[in-house]
């Protein structure tokens, strides 16, 4: 019996150490991620920034970095809830959804592709008599997908604010009833421009950068298209951290990101990180933009749920 008790004690100690080691392993790893349909490409964006951050957190016990991408916002929320991810780089509405669903913290604004902010534009084909949002009554508009900030949430909000009634269409052949505005998803920016150009829909909405990018709006299309409405600006991208990430790590990460532009050795890192110019503190102006976006998010969801 004595021998058995000793074995039990040793076993318990081993279990304890194993659990401790396992727990320490997770605590010593910083995990970055984003929603992705191309993990191979996005891995090369995220890894250099992750390595840079990890190299500046050694004294906090961070020994390793890991990339983890989610297929959609639902999976990302689950990762946040389970503590599997620490740091996310995403567009504004995804960031707000993570904040609302998991109390995730919005850390800093990212100047993705050198831009501090962007906005939604509404396009139509020249000569089809659409000059303002109310001209969309009884017509069809194409958006990107239900996770898009500037090609879903903002355009819906702009249309709701203009007093329009929205109706989701399952296919491009369907028509909205009465004076409703029928919206449909194209799943890519190039499809938005193409569908408008070809007259499959009456209008489309995406962001000002999509308009300039020939991959998204070919020059030959642009000449035949017309911008008839613009939204207010929004922060280009937000860095988010999980709510229960230890404070010293949160603070250090924030400090690393805010100071990275002053480190000449980090130029490669910023370039790889979606051509980011710098990060800045969420100040009053950005907070105002975020508050506007929160209203958009809630109002859009409210309106959709009440339809």
């Amino acid at each position: 019996m004595y021998l058995f008790r000793n074995y039990l004690l040793v076993f318990n100690i081993l279990i304890f150490f194993q659990v401790s080691i396992f727990a320490n392993n997770r605590d010593s790893i910083l995990v970055i991620g984003k929603v992705s349909n191309n993990p191979q490409k996005h891995y090369s964006y995220l890894k250099p920034m992750l390595n840079y951050a990890v190299s500046h957190m050694k004294d906090l016990g961070i020994k390793k970095g890991k990339v983890l991408m989610a297929r959609d916002n639902n999976q990302m929320i689950q990762y946040l809830q389970e503590g599997k991810i620490d740091w996310i780089t995403e567009s504004i509405f995804s960031a707000l959804i993570y904040q609302q669903t998991t109390n995730a913290e919005l850390l800093v604004r990212k100047w993705k592709k050198h831009s501090p902010n962007y906005y939604t534009i509404f396009i139509s084909k020249k000569g089809n008599d659409i000059n303002q949002l109310t001209d969309l009554k009884g017509r069809k508009i194409v958006l990107e997908d239900p996770g898009s900030s500037t090609a879903f949430y903002v355009p819906l909000m702009e249309m709701i604010n203009a007093g329009l009634t929205l109706e989701f269409l399952h296919s491009v052949e369907k028509k909205p009833s009465g004076n409703n505005v029928g919206y449909i998803f194209a799943n890519s920016e190039i499809n938005i421009a193409t569908w408008v150009f070809k007259g499959l829909v009456d209008a489309g909405a995406y962001n000002n950068e999509d308009w300039k990018k020939v991959d998204h709006t070919p020059v030959v299309f642009r000449k035949k298209l017309n911008i008839f409405h613009k939204s207010d600006t929004l922060p280009r991208s937000i860095e988010v951290v999980r709510n229960d990430l230890p404070d010293p790590i949160k603070k250090r990460l924030k400090s690393i990101l805010l100071n990275i532009e002053n480190d000449p050795s980090a130029r490669n890192v910023l370039f790889a990180y979606q051509k980011t110019k710098k990060f800045d503190e969420i100040n009053e102006d950005i907070n105002n933009e975020l508050n506007r976006a929160r209203i958009v998010l809630n109002k859009v969801h409210e309106n959709l749920n009440s339809l």
Binding site: P39, R71, N74, Q75, F168
Partner: peptide, 18 residues
């Protein structure tokens, strides 16, 4: 309405393949 259902599926394997 075009909004993805907010159901938490349990399929969240980190080694899931694309």
């Amino acid at each position: 309405l075009g909004i993805p259902a907010q159901i938490n599926t349990k399929k969240n394997d980190e080694k899931e393949l694309l």
